[in-house]
Nucleic acid binder design. Structure first.
Lengths: 120, 120
DNA sequence: CAATTATTTCGACATTTCTATAAATATCGA
DNA sequence: TCGATATTTATAGAAATGTCGAAATAATTG
């Protein structure tokens, strides 16, 4: 991950619809979802959805694959991981006590999902 | 962290200069840096820097404090942590094998890479 | 108080971004 | 092949954003 790539990825995520798409795909995992399902679930017009999916794909955050008439979109996990790592790179110059609570942020797919689904 | 707040934070980060400011402050840790130093290091005109710092502050990503003539800007760690957590919330619906490599993304402040997944 | 340093506010302009409608493409089943 | 379903492309206009120079504000020093 480098600076321009990170800006592109962040710009792709910095939009209501696209962030919703992204988070929906984060929940979905590897198989992903067809464009139509995303459009229906998020209440977005198909052309608008395509526009946003293209933004996410161009930023390398999602990938697509056709399955019959449907086109499935799924998360590009490597990019997501790269982005998160890039944001906290060289954090605090080796003074962990300053932002020690951060590691939990990356605790994706934690085996002990004790947290509530939706924040209260 | 909620959806609108996350969009605001991401939008604040989705810009070259602001991402550079943010990452510089991530490296700096708690004390932060005066606006002038940031402007000089990043080669940005003072008014432009102020504009971007305000964007970051409005998004809750940085805070400022005056010290004499200088105004120090420092990272708002809680917001950063909240944002990273929000992005990977409910990742893969409990199928860790799908995106297991993600945890390292949050390994902030780790000069010695230890597996401190869930501290307490 | 006057001069100097540090930062912010103001005003204006070019550029980019988002959304919607209409039309086009791709795939499947009869 | 024809019709139906799923998705994309094309086009255009309104709204938001980034950058700059000039001037203003805040704090320190002589």
């Amino acid at each position: 991950m480098n600076h321009p790539t990170a800006v592109a990825a962040l710009a792709a995520l910095a939009q209501e619809t696209r962030l919703a798409i992204f988070r929906r795909l984060v929940r979905e995992g590897a198989p992903g979802l067809p464009a139509g399902v995303l459009a229906a679930e998020l209440g977005v017009a198909p052309p608008t959805l395509t526009f946003h999916l293209n933004q996410l794909a161009t930023a390398g955050l999602v990938q697509s694959r056709r399955a019959g008439r449907q086109v499935f979109y799924a998360l590009e996990v490597d990019t997501m991981r790269g982005l998160l790592g890039f944001l906290v790179e060289d954090c605090c110059q080796g003074h962990p006590e300053l932002c020690a609570p951060l590691p939990q942020a990356g605790a994706c797919c934690s085996p002990a999902p004790r947290r509530a689904r939706r924040a209260p």
